[in-house]
Nucleic acid binder design. Structure first.
Length: 584
RNA sequence: GGAGCCAUAGCUCAGCUGGAUAGAGCACUGGUCUACGGAACCAGGGGUCGGAGGUUCGAAUCCUCCUGGCUCCGCCA
């Protein structure tokens, strides 16, 4: 077992426990090793003996004894005790903990090994529409998706972040017709701004509701666009370019990036082929003029889908394609590029669409690992979905939300009288405001809805973004004040004796396990929980144990702990897409 | 008509591949400290985990039913 691998403590101990069961009892069984929820039960507990005893018809405590004995012999384990109905409680050896921490200090990856198998992964996230401003509805996908990309990349995977923008479809016929009806010429088109574009769309779509001639115009313009008409194509390109300018501004503020911008238009030429294949393979059939997949007619369809009487439509009766078709083409295209895994960071309400999509992809023979990373709705303080427009009907844009976050952060920094020079105030307020919004989102279990409350998320205490940034800044300040070169710390041994030192050390030891769990399950809140626990343990430690005032080995050990805290906080925040600041 | 999600402390939320006395933040109460950044630390009160059954050595977690909120599903994405 190499050194890096043993940084994943939980996995290492689980392996030891399985081996101990095998050795002591001569059977292969899951160890069910978990961190304890109560420090009185040690650091990790093994629950596997109880079900095993049941299975063998033996007394659990009787079986647990010899297993514990074998575990206790390992240098990592100071104590292995049988407790309760048959738990085996493990307490790690202080010296071993210290040794692990030294190794992570010496490791440029802070002790986090890469994943065992490297994959090529595409992550779909953000996905706004062309000709519309981003609104609060895009917040979670954008923040969560970007964090996930970085977590997976840190695991060593080859990750492609893809912004699958809505840049194709019926709305472009409406926009072109609307612009023309509005007396729009080339000059007008060239000077368009995004809010104007949005206004034109709103009017045009309202007009098409009751004005049949106009609606027919829009359909004609759409057809021309789709058949490659040069003038309409130029207008469409203009729409895309105008929107892109505004999108790029928002992404720059958020620090969010993409590797691909393969929007729906990119897949348009492949759509007829997708439908042909589905028909030819007998996966879809025509019904009432539309081409549909009926899961109830499949052999071995997922039971949930089989009960569904409504079909998965891939071509409308008017011949137009849908996003289902486009999503299938996307999978097809990615498969041809040798992508192993596709991750979709999209609202949970689309769960059924993805189940259907993935089922069809599997039926087509695709082996790609496909995952829908769903998330809940952002709610207002009233517990209802956050409105995308205010009472007057004005769109509540993502940009305006970020403006408010920054303004509130600046006000808070002034109010608290923090250590921020006037010249850096704007930049610090930006980092704090944006960081607070991101942290508030990421610390939540993604599947549940969450209440968006500016008053809480800008608070400089508790489990909130600014508190984490503050903790990181404070660590930096210790090294500055002590004139200690943080990077130069490379102890080969640490003396940890104080309870506060050991409690902090044990928390730091979890970093690698947590990062992998967060990435594997697409749950960044596991990482925020860890970072918050580190920050809290650090505060207790800092209160109880003088660092700069200590001497000799004690000082060295405390500096090493402090350095690790700083590294985990900075690394963690950075992976989540949150900027740390030097001073605040 | 079919499918799915949610209900945990006053508030916002963790915990849900079953494990030991259900955790955190905020709020509240009390305490510490002439302070290596007090945006601190320590301690405390507060929950029949929506209800009722069931499976199990063990259920917030799994199963069934009920109540109350919410979402999705034939031609938007």
């Amino acid at each position: 077992m190499n050194r890096a691998l043993t940084m994943r403590i939980e996995r290492t101990l689980d392996g030891l426990a399985v081996a101990a069961i095998q050795d002591a009892l001569g059977v292969q069984a899951p160890a069910l090793l978990r961190p304890t929820t109560d420090a009185r039960h040690g650091d990790y507990q093994m629950n596997g003996v109880m079900p095993l005893a049941k299975q063998l018809g033996r007394a659990p405590r009787e079986l647990a004894g010899p297993v514990a004995e074998r575990l206790a012999a390992h240098p990592a384990i100071a104590k292995a005790e049988v407790a309760g109905p048959g738990f085996v409680n493990l307490t790690l050896a202080d010296a071993w903990i210290a040794e692990r921490l030294c190794a992570s200090l010496a490791d440029p990856r802070d002790g986090v090994p890469e994943a065992d198998a490297r994959q090529r992964i595409v992550v779909d996230y953000s996905s706004p529409n062309i000709a519309k401003q981003m609104h609060v509805g895009h917040l979670r996908s954008t923040i969560l998706g970007h964090a996930l990309v970085q977590l997976l990349r840190f695991q060593g995977h080859e990750v492609i972040g893809d912004n699958h923008v809505g840049d194709w479809g019926t709305q472009y016929g409406l926009l072109i017709a609307g612009l023309r009806a509005d007396g729009g010429d080339d000059a007008r088109a060239a000077a368009l701004t995004l809010p104007e574009l949005e206004g034109i769309y709103k009017q045009a779509s309202a007009r098409a509701e009751h004005d049949e001639a106009f609606a027919a115009d829009a359909r004609r313009e759409l057809a021309k666009l789709q058949s490659g008409d040069a003038a309409n194509r130029a207008l469409w390109e203009r729409f895309v370019a105008v929107t892109r300018i505004e999108l790029d501004k928002v992404y720059a503020r958020l620090g969010v990036t993409f590797d691909w911008w393969k929007g729906e238009s990119f897949y348009d030429p492949m759509l007829p082929g997708v439908v042909d294949t589905l028909l030819a393979r007998g996966i879809a059939r025509e019904d009432q003029g539309a081409v549909c997949v009926f899961f109830g007619e499949w052999d071995g369809a997922p039971p949930k889908l089989a009960k569904q009487t409504t079909p998965f439509i891939v071509r409308k009766k008017d011949g137009a394609f849908l996003y289902s078709t486009s999503d299938l083409a996307t999978i097809e295209h990615r498969a041809s590029l040798g992508i192993d895994r596709g991750v979709y960071v999209v609202d949970s309400r689309q769960a059924q669409h993805f189940e259907q999509l993935f089922a069809v992809a599997a039926k087509l023979g695709h082996r790609m690992q496909l995952e829908h990373v769903g998330f809940g709705t952002v709610l207002g303080k009233d517990g209802k979905p956050l409105k995308t427009r205010d009472a007057s009907g004005k769109v509540l844009t993502l940009a305006s939300l970020l403006d408010e976050a920054e303004a509130r952060a600046e006000a808070e920094i002034r109010r608290e009288g923090l250590d921020v020079p006037e010249s850096e105030l704007t930049e610090v307020a930006r980092a704090v405001g944006i960081g607070a919004v991101k942290y508030a989102d990421l610390r939540q279990n993604r599947l549940s809805d969450y209440q968006f409350d500016f008053d809480k998320l800008i608070e400089f205490k508790g489990n909130a973004g600014p508190y984490m940034q503050y903790a990181a800044a404070r660590v930096g300040s210790i090294f500055r004040k002590g004139e200690v070169d943080e990077a130069g710390l490379a102890p080969t041994a640490l003396t940890l004796t104080e309870p506060a030192e050991l409690a902090l050390a044990r928390q730091l030891l979890r970093f690698a396990d947590v990062l992998h769990a967060a990435a594997d399950t697409a749950q960044p809140h596991l990482l925020t929980d860890h970072l918050y626990a580190v920050a809290r343990e650090f505060s207790s430690f800092y209160e109880a144990c003088p660092v700069l005032k200590a001497e000799g080995d004690v000082r060295q050990a405390r500096l090493a702990l402090t350095a690790l805290v700083g590294r985990q906080l900075r690394r963690g925040l950075s992976l989540l897409g949150i900027d740390a600041v030097e001073r605040m």
